[in-house]
Design a binder for these strands. Structure first.
Lengths: 182, 182
DNA sequence: TTCTCCATGTAAGTAGTTACATGATTGG
DNA sequence: CCAATCATGTAACTACTTACATGGAGAA
């Protein structure tokens, strides 16, 4: 029972329900506000996932319209909580899948004139700097959550910040040493 | 002429040809050895890409069998070099697409017993530590390339190293401060 | 009244993967 | 002679995205 035919995105839906999201719409919002830095999910995936999870008995849904506007809210069942925990416990290969056109372009930048290469480097640098700044702005919110017992969202946020800051640092060093003597 | 209907992966093929790869097989090897950390491409994509690029006049291919084994080698045309340069110059949105089940699990780890959460954290840490070590081993090779004029591959390699090291650092700090007082 | 947000859903399409199929060459 | 590597190609499938379609609620 409760075999592993759920996609990672279905587990994300399950997890967000566990953290208090209730409608499909809310799940989408929450993903955008919390994990979009390392996971995305489109609304066209969420609703079928919810139906699939309900059929599997991992969530229960009930209609709770806002006025005349239809709305369906979901909650984890005991089986759903268990399934989520099992998935989190389960040691499985965790491929790190980065797909970054920016880094690809930078990799090939020797084919460019120095000035163009430099512009590309700056664009990549700016992107990471901006991302780090955005994430740093969210930190207070995550800190509040951490005081209420959810400490891991704060950890993943810090990882995002740290790693964009690391990119910026390397880019600056490189521009300093390697590029200046040309 | 030379409009932008090429996929990023087609540009990767073009770029690898520019760096000296010649057969589809070699392109695949080169991708695995150099950019697989931030881009992957399956062999089932490479051969059709090559055909498409040839049709567009960006590469020329000729048969160069090894013994009786068929083999087709390609080279960039002037138009292909130009197209690659144009793409590299072109400022376009560069989404940073990370898709990481490890971080997702970590994000939800508050649903686990402390020991299980800790085990998950260690698994993520180990993954980054190993990846950083692997990349550090490649560094001498990239250094050689850098002395021959290809300096940007070294930069992207350093970015990979730095960012996995940053993850390890954050994970260690977190385990130190946040987790110990419980 | 009009705009933005809340809310759900589907259809069509794209990009990519895995797995299969084939077979020659080289080195031990 | 056997395994690993070199080498090319396709078919079937999966996951996911974009765009479309619909419409109520609340605020300005």
């Amino acid at each position: 029972m409760s075999s592993d035919e759920l996609s990672p995105s279905a587990y994300v839906v399950l997890g967000m329900l566990g953290l208090g999201a209730s409608s499909g719409y809310e799940i989408k919002q929450m993903v955008e506000l919390s994990i979009r830095f390392f996971w995305t999910i489109s609304q066209a995936q969420i609703y079928p996932s919810l139906a699939q999870l309900e059929e599997a008995g991992l969530v229960v849904g009930r209609s709770e319209p806002r006025g005349r506007r239809p709305r369906r809210v979901y909650a984890l069942t005991a089986a759903g909580e268990e399934e989520l925990r099992l998935w989190l416990q389960q040691a499985e290969p965790m491929p790190f899948e980065l797909r970054d056109i920016g880094l690809v372009k930078l990799f090939f930048a020797d084919a460019l004139e120095p000035d163009d290469a430099r512009a590309l480097l700056d664009a990549v640098r700016r992107r990471s700097a901006e991302r780090a700044a955005t994430l740093r702005e969210i930190e207070p919110v995550a800190n509040v959550g951490a005081e209420e017992g959810d400490i891991y969202p704060l950890l993943t946020l810090r990882m995002g910040i740290a790693f964009h800051e690391a990119m910026v640092r390397v880019l600056d060093e490189f521009a300093g040493h390697t590029l200046e003597g040309r």
